[in-house]
Computed example of a mutant assay.
Amino acid sequence: MVTATVLALGAWPATAHAFGEDEDHPPTGPSGGASGNTLTAGVGTSITVKQVNGGKGGDLVHVTPSLSWGEELMVNHYEKGEDQSDGAEGYKDFNIGKDGKFWRGVMNPDVENTFEARQCETNLFWQDAREIPGIKNAPTPKILAGYAYNKIKVPDTKVEMKPVGESTVNLPTWVWLDKGKFEPVKVRAELPGTGLWAETTAKPVSLHLDPGTPDAETFPADGECAVNDDGSIGTPYRKGSAKEDPPCGIKYLRATGGDPYRMKASLTWEITWTGNGGAGGDLPDGTFEGTQDVDVQEIQSINR
């Protein structure tokens, strides 16, 4: 029985185009492309991508073998051992008894079908077990880090607030994020049987608050709430602190006139990667937004 593994070649998953780069170079600027709370990429390869912790969920992409070559080529080159016209040495009886597998290079189906992209296509070739395919554009730890990056799934950006849903003019609304929910998220991508792997780790580094109206003040003044040493952001409201300025929050200066303000919280995740052989580095930050309605009322008082 002959087994083969599909190997999608190219230096970066297709959705890296969202960051203004091409297939041969990883993105370098801040990210902004995302689907919901997931950075996604279509992967039709033998590369497995698995979220191993954080984010309350993940995805696993499995191998899908593809055997689509001509019968004459199969018999002459892989069974009878005849060399190909390009000089590729033939295989006798499909290398039966040897430890390894056949690989086939294919164009990433998610990139534009161009002449350059089609140069990734290769016929089946043999690779000994536990070795990285020795062809041009074969995956590297950095490439696997790109696949892992594009499968990061983080929690919805919904902050804790006090008061909840309804605030009062000139009294602060406290905002914070629970460190337990927004823990670092790790995703691992690997090429089975080769020892090639990479892991990306995303951790929240800042929260930006947009009150939804110019008639408001933010705490801090620039609206950027940093992460505390314990991984949380902001401070939960404590009884008796209603008139204090929170480390992270908003003070509304005008009441809502029927429609609530749409308070926007944008959480930035810093993303790094490590791989086999001591490889590693930084990847573009991911920023995810969430909006929450806030009603603001005037303080009611009675004059005597």
Rank of each mutant, 00 (worst) to 15 (best):
I250N: 01
T274C: 02
H208Y: 02
L207Q: 00
A265K: 09
P247A: 02
S241C: 10
A265H: 08
W269S: 08
D215L: 14
E217F: 04
T268E: 08
D230Q: 10
P211D: 11
D215Q: 13
L267W: 03
P247T: 08
N228R: 00
A255C: 12
A265Y: 00
D245E: 10
D259I: 02
H208Q: 12
A216W: 02
G258K: 11
G240I: 04
E224K: 13
T272V: 06
T256V: 11
D210C: 01
D222S: 05
E224Y: 03
D259R: 13
P211T: 15
L207S: 02
G257S: 15
S266F: 00
A255E: 15
P214F: 06
A221P: 12
P211W: 15
I233Q: 03
K251T: 14
R238S: 12
C248N: 03
D259T: 14
T213D: 11
T218W: 01
E217M: 10
G212A: 08
A265F: 00
L267I: 07
L267H: 03
E224N: 15
Y261V: 12
E270L: 04
R254I: 07
G212F: 09
T218I: 04
Y261H: 13
G240Q: 09
V227N: 00
D245V: 06
W273F: 09
K243H: 10
D222G: 05
V227M: 06
G249W: 05
G231F: 00
K264M: 11
K264L: 08
